[in-house]
Design a protein around this nucleic acid. Sequence first.
DNA 1: GCCAACGTTGGC
DNA 2: GCCAACGTTGGC
Length: 156
Amino acid sequence: MAKYWLVKSEPSVFSIDDLARAKDRTTFWDGVRNFQARNLLRDEMSVGDGVLFYHSSADPPAAVGTAKVAAAARPDPSQFDAKSDHYDRDSSKEAPRWFGVDIQLDRKFARPVTLAELRAMPALADMVLLRRGSRLSVQPVSAAEWRAICKLGFEG
DNA sequence: GCCAACGTTGGC
DNA sequence: GCCAACGTTGGC
């Protein structure tokens, strides 16, 4: 049974249009440096799971489309690269600390579904994204939440 | 640019 | 094991 997720990206760094232009519309989702998000990536995400693509620090912040998990977790090479912003001196190739998955664009929404709209939807009352102080860059999404957001994004 | 909220680190 | 300090996230 496929699960559903939400990933955040700052569009000034990597937007859904960047994903649409990527080879095979697929990118390696790297740079996650939070243990809770890491655990979800590494232990819970499976090929075929649905991924809501969310633009954070955007104007306005919004869910902008859907993607899929195209490959399960593998070690994130940037943790071993001393020149990378994501370098982690405490990690090792024998026991990598950080992981990433491949994300493939499914479909961009017909229109962005803004954070304000999400907050206004009763069906999303318990959504992780909308919880006070929620900062996880990889989050679980329920099937009902997924359906409600996709309906708005694809059908207006 | 501000600031609330959170995660991580490190001193003790 | 506690907790203060610090860095980061992300909405506004």
